[in-house]
Design a protein around this nucleic acid. Sequence first.
DNA 1: TATATATATGAGTATAATTGAATATAATCA
DNA 2: TGATTATATTCAATTATACTCATATATATA
Lengths: 132, 132
Amino acid sequence: MDLIEIFKALGDENRIRILNLLIRQELCVCEIETVLDMTQSNASRHLNKLKTSGIITSEKKSQWVYYRVDNKFIEENNLLYEFIKNKMAENTQLLRDIETLKKYKNSNFTCEQLREDKSQVLKYLREQCNNN
Amino acid sequence: MDLIEIFKALGDENRIRILNLLIRQELCVCEIETVLDMTQSNASRHLNKLKTSGIITSEKKSQWVYYRVDNKFIEENNLLYEFIKNKMAENTQLLRDIETLKKYKNSNFTCEQLREDKSQVLKYLREQCNNN
DNA sequence: TATATATATGAGTATAATTGAATATAATCA
DNA sequence: TGATTATATTCAATTATACTCATATATATA
């Protein structure tokens, strides 16, 4: 049942956190990895689960793979999609993640810098977020 | 996260089948057990999971425990609830379950009869459903 | 009170999901 | 081409879920 696969995909904290970011904007794996502070393989796996259940889709741009919410999913599951967005707006953890995403985007760190010194970027993001 | 517990509870075929029935009407454990042809302990466990996640509620009436969708859940998660109902109406398995429920109700079998000869009741329900 | 019964729960097992570390793959760039 | 890198995948370990059978609990009834 499609319905059940969707609910299974949504029934995991890491995947909800990823989806929360992707609802804001499309992102590549290394960005998600950084903002949510999870391992690369874990991010990739969760993205795959969201993709297999039809919630998100991906596009390869040179060496990066960009993920975004699938428009087909939004159309076909609009009530669910609106529900998710509403509930996400009430959740502190998810709001914090959005703040981290904003800080990350404002920092103008690139995927190249992430590669060179990820720990510095993470430190920067934590400091910025603690200032709020 | 509440949200995740709800999705976890919904991410299981047996629980979706149970919820599908309860959306129609409140039912006791032995009725669910019979209509969905599952073991008593399994039905009870799934009902408990739906209950702890806040989707359904229960009321004990003499020796029976009646389960129904929690009104609080409907109010607080209305978009999700409407989504679920819409999707359920598109699913053949779930529509078949509703037919079985109707047959069961029309048969006027009681919980007492179920206890005495459950196999007869199951046979009857299967025959009735195959006629459609 | 003794018996029957509706439901819940415990124990054990089987299956599935999640994870990190290591490796494979595919694209880029020097 | 060879080195680097972004992402995916495999492996092995752990943890969580689901299921069945047996038993406990609470209620009803003779």
